[in-house]
Computed example of a mutant assay.
Amino acid sequence: MIRKQDNKVQNKTSEKGTPNPTPIDTIVLVWNWPWGEHFALDKCTEFGFHGCKLSTNRSLYGIADAVVIHHADIMHNRNALPKQPRPSFQRWVWNNLEPPLIITNLEMLDNLFNATMTFRQDSDIFIPYGQIETMKESRNFSIPKKSKLVSWVVSKWYPGVPRISFYEELNKHIPIDVYGKRHKPLRSEDFHQTISQYKFYLSFENSIYKDYITEKFWSNAFGSWAVPVVLGTSRENYERFVPGDSFIHVDDFPSPKELAEYLLELDKDDVKYQKYFNWRSRYYVKALSGWSYQYCKACAVIKQSPRYQVVHQLAKWFLKDV
């Protein structure tokens, strides 16, 4: 059998001698393990993605339909990119789930990539940190018992970013239990059980950026059944992905003091507080973390869509909303 680079089919000959084109696997080359984290390459069918082959075997470069390159692992070394010219049929996929605060050296990648894989909804391959799905039928639910008020888990204390100054002011008006480095210890296996005891969780992003809504919101808050108090992109941006009555946005209040007063008011009013859970009768949260799922989804998108957007200047595209 011959792999044809133009139409990506294998030609088999029927009993009557007539070629029968049949689909073949879409090959996605995992150029570098993201953040050095290895993941299973054989899970695509388990996620419902068929006809996909993930591989780290660089000898497949010449026939791979796509090469996914994780930015953080090459951003300080352009020589870590493939040395061979890109075949005309192949996509180089720029993979990045970090905000501009974290990444650098985008300019060195001009005119190299022809597909994007990020948390931005306008990416070729959209990889959100989570999403909600509509239920076929409404369901009843019970809210975990709440005995505590506000919590926050933070591992990176970036000085000067808005979430730090906002927390420091908010903490003057309402008690906040902070977990993570330099604060209360919290084992990962105890995370959801611990945070579910709190009525509110500070889903404060380290960057305010379009579509950047991370596990702080999806897994930490929603996954623990705490009402998210969000600091990040705009309310309008959040409402593109979740109902407006599922979270509290800091921008809805003139100051941290007024926000604290509102949270204390909800603490005393069970009926008003419980309205932030009404959406759960119609939707459920689907966490989308895990590299295996993300790379399989990339393969499926590439397999289904022959079109892509050429990004001549990654910095111009990615930084346009900063």
Rank of each mutant, 00 (worst) to 15 (best):
W31D: 02
N32K: 10
W33Q: 09
P34L: 00
E37D: 06
E37F: 02
E37R: 04
H38T: 14
F39L: 06
F39I: 10
A40E: 15
L41P: 05
D42E: 15
D42Y: 08
T45L: 09
T45I: 03
E46A: 11
E46R: 00
H50R: 05
H50L: 08
G51W: 00
G51M: 07
C52R: 00
K53Q: 04
K53Y: 01
S55Y: 00
S55K: 07
N57H: 12
R58P: 00
R58I: 04
S59G: 01
S59K: 14
S59V: 04
L60C: 03
Y61M: 04
G62T: 03
G62N: 01
G62V: 01
I63H: 06
A64N: 00
A64Y: 05
A64V: 00
V67Y: 08
V67M: 01
V68T: 01
V68M: 03
V68P: 04
I69F: 08
I69S: 04
I69T: 02
H70A: 09
H70N: 11
A72K: 13
A72H: 08
I74A: 12
N79K: 14
L81T: 10
L81Q: 11
L81V: 12
P82F: 11
P82A: 04
K83F: 03
K83T: 09
Q84R: 07
P85T: 12
P85G: 11
R86E: 02
Q90A: 04
Q90F: 02
R91S: 14
W92Y: 13
W92S: 00
V93Q: 04
V93G: 02
W94R: 03
N95S: 11
N95L: 14
N96W: 00
N96C: 12
L97T: 12
L97E: 14
L97M: 15
L97P: 12
E98C: 13
E98V: 05
E98A: 06
P99D: 11
P99Q: 09
P100E: 15
P100Q: 13
I102T: 15
I102S: 14
I103C: 08
I103A: 14
N105Y: 07
N105S: 12
N105T: 04
L106D: 09
L106N: 11
M108N: 05
D110R: 06
D110V: 05
N111S: 09
N111T: 02
N114A: 06
A115I: 02
T116C: 06
M117V: 09
T118I: 06
T118G: 12
F119W: 04
R120Q: 15
D122A: 01
D122C: 03
D124N: 07
D124G: 11
I125A: 12
I125W: 12
I125C: 14
F126I: 08
P128W: 10
P128V: 13
G130M: 05
G130P: 07
I132K: 09
I132N: 03
T134D: 13
T134E: 15
M135W: 00
K136Y: 07
E137Q: 14
E137T: 08
E137L: 02
S138Y: 00
F141D: 03
S142W: 00
I143V: 15
P144H: 06
K145R: 13
K146F: 05
S147T: 15
S147I: 15
S147W: 07
S147V: 14
L149F: 01
S151C: 14
W152T: 05
W152H: 00
